[in-house]
Design a protein around this nucleic acid. Structure first.
Length: 813
RNA sequence: GCCGUUGUGGCGGAAUUGGCAGACGCGCUGGACUCAAAAUCCAGUUCCUUCACGGGAGUGUGGGUUCGACCCCCACCGACGGCACCA
């Protein structure tokens, strides 16, 4: 439905937008200078995956935001780096290629061309000379190089890991946890088995502490920082060693509450714990085996989400509490996860909800060691005086933890310990369309890296990219690529797994700084000049994965001395989602999808940019409104008519003379718009520009200086129409680098001010007074005002609050 | 369940440090222009009450602090996002 009717109008967005896009291209207006004396500003968008669908209306929101800031900063004399590129590896392309029998590389090329064309049609001021593409061998050479550095420092390793294996899907493939529902694949409903498989893993946990601690200094949304903290999940506690009766092994547990050690009444191992076979007594052997078998077919999801009812079985063995020598029965239960801590716990049912539930179900003893609460009803997890705890009696939680840790350490029974929820990053994918992992496995068992001089290790062209069916990547089928022989005739086989999509996106912002460098991922001096990113805008869906992985790689590169800063992105902003007109997420099935190409065609890119910025705060999710969009276009028409007449000439009332009538509003507008752009408050900046236009329509004469200033303020949001209007004053010249307007503070103050009059906090009137009035005189005038007199007639004045130049509040009763 | 964000007219949203609630836009109403319509320009538009001046209520709910609260504090309710037996 088209609400805005296209008429024969003076403001023709089609001609104007094409004209200026060509102008910018031809003159390379936005080509970034190398290092200069100017201060730098690095404004970055999260680069997109170039899907076959093209841009959706959510993309231009973030892109316009960084574009506005970039354009303002250029006018303010900054050297601005504002690049764009493509995160082009990924499963959707691979699947589309299989369906159509085409090469992923060819599909990618087309999609990228389409994306670039769409972005140019939006008038975004990117320096396209710096475009990067993660699938370009010249780019992924350095992705592979970073992997090799990680490997050399022991931060990339191979491990057998439990994966979700779906043998009946796509001829056998591994699926992600998110793709498994109720033990079946999300697509197709095929059964999923948990099997151990050899995977490449990156030791992100080695950086866990720094990844948490360095969040404090970042200018990021609190919610994202909090998500990362929770994801990393640092908890401080102690590890404690328990002897086993009639066995030389020890059980190590991690606990955040070592102070409750005297309250331990049993122990639990995860069913997969390596000591289970060793300690299970013959009498319990069959029962334990059956339990473990039942657990094995369950996914992690089922074990946690679907199973709040505790299950478990006694092993027949006993451990010894190191602090008092008590015998503790050892159980196995699936509420203890093999993947966290040591996969074993000491159970203190009196003071832990989960242990309490388990103890209730299996009639295990519950022994209180902290005062407070009622352990007949529920576990007490709060603080309090310790009881039944020998040398800890009388202490509170903090003091008791400190004391027991000293005891454990001096008796060699444990130590203070920090544990993380974060696990190492599974880095291999059994896919074709990703960066090859540059590793060779030789027949004698040796594993070597592809020598740096031979990078990039190129992904071979292949028209057979179907899964192998045995869990290996399609690359395993390409025999002349996989099989290698070294100079001594030794045979080897290349690693066939590829890297995940997160690899290329973990460092792309560094490459923009020096995109053609052949000898380093980027020149260190250039990185020193441009880094870190001053403004990074993108969707909140990348809160943990991309943003955590990128921080991890950046810190690693920092340790290598390859990058000069600890953190990659100083300021981060998440744009909100644009919802459909029915306030639901846009989707084809709901039929509420808005296509940006259609908007650009009908209303113009400037209208789209203006509308998306005016809808509301950048970080908020807001529903699309066709009426609102049409209103934005109408306002641009109104701006045009303010400056241009029916014959498309400058209006006759735009004059050199300045009668001062617009002085206050103009200076206010410059001040507010500048600071609002700076603070990314585009909706209020635009409303201020609207106020200026409303006022400008009410005066007879428009000073040239103010109109030029207004056009410059407008330009970052709607650059095409602004350039066209600017060219009326300065023919064939871009305003991109024209100096940003300044304001005169003295024009903002008024001779007369309005003061609000209140009685007991309620507004009873307003008076206009001279700005330099004395407080005494102001009070006198306020009390003399007619309605104030009426309101105060029967009351006694107790107090008068006099806020300078703002308000008088009379307290009376 | 836990953590985070958030709640303001018919709608999207403003409100600097605790000081006029509702800027700006959409929608709606009226006027000007027009033979008429569209477009445009101007004016009005939180709700109740009043011919009017004015008065009363009002920022999810209930309390509190204050001369004064959308803003600060306590408790609760709803929406959105994340995590989910993490010992």
């Amino acid at each position: 439905m088209i609400k805005y009717k296209e008429l024969i109008m003076a403001y023709n967005h089609k001609t104007i937008e094409k004209k200026w896009q060509n102008f910018w291209d031809k003159h390379e207006t936005f080509k970034t200078a190398e290092k200069t004396d100017k201060p730098k500003f690095y404004a970055l968008d999260m680069f997109p995956f170039p899907s076959g669908q093209g841009l959706h209306v959510g993309h231009p929101e973030g892109y316009t935001a960084t574009d506005i800031v970039s354009r303002m900063k250029r006018a303010q004399g900054f050297n601005v780096l504002h690049p764009m590129g493509f995160d082009a590896f990924g499963l959707p392309t691979e699947q589309y290629a299989m369906k159509t029998g085409r090469f992923p590389a060819d599909i990618t090329k087309e999609n990228v061309a389409n994306f670039r064309k769409q972005m140019k049609s939006l008038g975004l001021s990117y320096d396209w000379n710096r475009e990067v593409n993660t699938t370009d061998p010249k780019y992924y050479k350095w992705t592979q190089w970073i992997f090799e550095q990680l490997y050399k420092r022991g931060l990339a390793y191979e491990d057998k890991i439990m994966v979700n294996w779906a043998p009946d899907l796509l001829g056998g493939t591994v699926v992600a946890n998110e793709e498994v529902i109720d033990g079946k694949t999300e697509r197709g409903g095929f059964p999923v088995y948990r099997v151990p498989m050899r995977q490449w893993v990156l030791r992100i946990t080695a950086y866990a502490d720094r990844l948490i601690d360095d969040l404090d200094d970042l200018d990021w949304p609190e919610s994202i920082k909090e998500q990362q903290r929770n994801w990393i999940g640092r908890s401080v506690g102690a590890s404690v060693f328990f002897d086993i009766e009639n066995n030389n092994e020890k059980i190590e547990v991690f606990t955040t509450r070592p102070d409750t050690l005297f309250g331990a009444s049993y122990m639990v191992l995860s069913p997969e714990h390596k000591l289970v076979d060793e300690i299970t007594t013959p009498a319990q052997q069959v029962a334990v085996e059956e339990y473990r078998k039942a657990i094995a077919s369950k996914s992690d999801l089922e074990r946690t989400d679907l199973n709040k009812d505790k299950t478990g079985i006694f092993t027949g063995a006993y451990a010894i509490n190191p602090v008092n020598g008590e015998k503790l029965p050892i159980w196995i239960a699936d509420y203890v996860l093999a993947s966290y801590g040591t996969g074993a716990i000491m159970a203190v049912p009196a003071h832990d909800t989960r242990d309490y539930e388990f103890a209730q179900k299996f009639a295990l003893p519950i022994k209180a060691v902290i005062e407070g609460g009622d352990i007949d009803k529920e576990a007490y997890t709060g603080d309090g005086k310790h009881i039944n705890s020998d040398f800890l009696n009388g202490l509170d939680k903090t003091a008791a933890i400190e004391k027991i840790i000293v005891w454990l350490e001096t008796h060699n029974r444990g130590a203070k310990k920090v544990n993380f929820r974060l696990r190492d990053w599974i880095f291999s994918r059994q896919r074709y369309w990703g960066e090859p992992i540059p590793v060779i496995n030789w027949e004698d068992g040796e594993t070597t890296l592809v020598p740096e001089a031979e990078l990039p290790l190129k992904l071979p062209y292949s028209d057979d990219i179907k899964p192998t069916g045995n869990g290996e990547s399609p690359l395993a089928n390409i025999t002349d690529w996989v099989n290698v022989v070294d100079e001594n005739g030794r045979k080897g086989r290349r690693e066939t797994n590829t890297m995940p999509q997160w690899a290329g996106s973990s460092w792309y912002f560094l490459r923009y700084v020096d995109p053609d460098n052949q000898t380093a991922l980027a020149d260190l001096d250039k990185l020193k000049y441009w880094g870190p990113v001053d403004l990074y805008v993108g969707g909140a869906e990348h809160a943990v994965l991309h943003l955590l992985y990128a921080r991890f790689w950046h810190k690693f590169l920092y340790d290598l001395g390859v990058v000069p800063t600890k953190e990659p992105f100083q300021k981060l902003v998440n744009q909100g989602m644009i919802l459909g007109e029915n306030h639901e997420k846009m989707s084809k099935s709901k039929g509420n999808v808005v296509n940006p190409d259609d908007i650009v065609e009908q209303y113009g890119a400037d209208t789209l940019r203006l509308y998306e910025m005016f809808m509301g705060p950048l970080d908020q999710s807001i529903a699309w409104s066709e009426d609102g969009l049409a209103g934005s276009r109408r306002w641009l028409d109104r701006v045009w008519r303010l400056i241009m007449d029916d014959q498309n000439k400058l209006k006759a009332n735009i004059v050199d003379n300045n009668d001062g009538k617009l002085a206050k509003i103009y200076n206010e507008t410059v001040k507010k718009v500048t600071s609002d752009y700076e603070g990314l408050r585009f909706n209020t900046a635009i409303s201020q520009l609207m106020v200026f236009v409303n006022d400008a329509y009410k005066v007879e004469q428009l000073p040239v200086a103010y109109i030029e200033g207004f056009i410059k303020l407008l330009a970052p949001v709607v650059p095409h129409i602004a350039e066209e209007l600017w060219s009326q004053f300065h023919p064939d010249n871009s305003l991109a680098y024209a100096a940003w307007p300044t304001y005169d503070e003295s024009k903002l103050v008024e001779d007369e001010i309005q003061v609000v009059l209140q009685v007991n906090g309620k507004v009873r009137g307003k008076i206009i007074v001279a700005a330099d009035i004395t407080p005494e005189e102001l009070e006198k005038r306020a009390l003399a005002e007619a309605n104030m007199q009426k309101q105060l007639a029967d009351l006694t004045i107790r107090k008068v609050i006099n806020i300078k130049n703002k308000l008088i509040n009379v307290v009376a009763n």
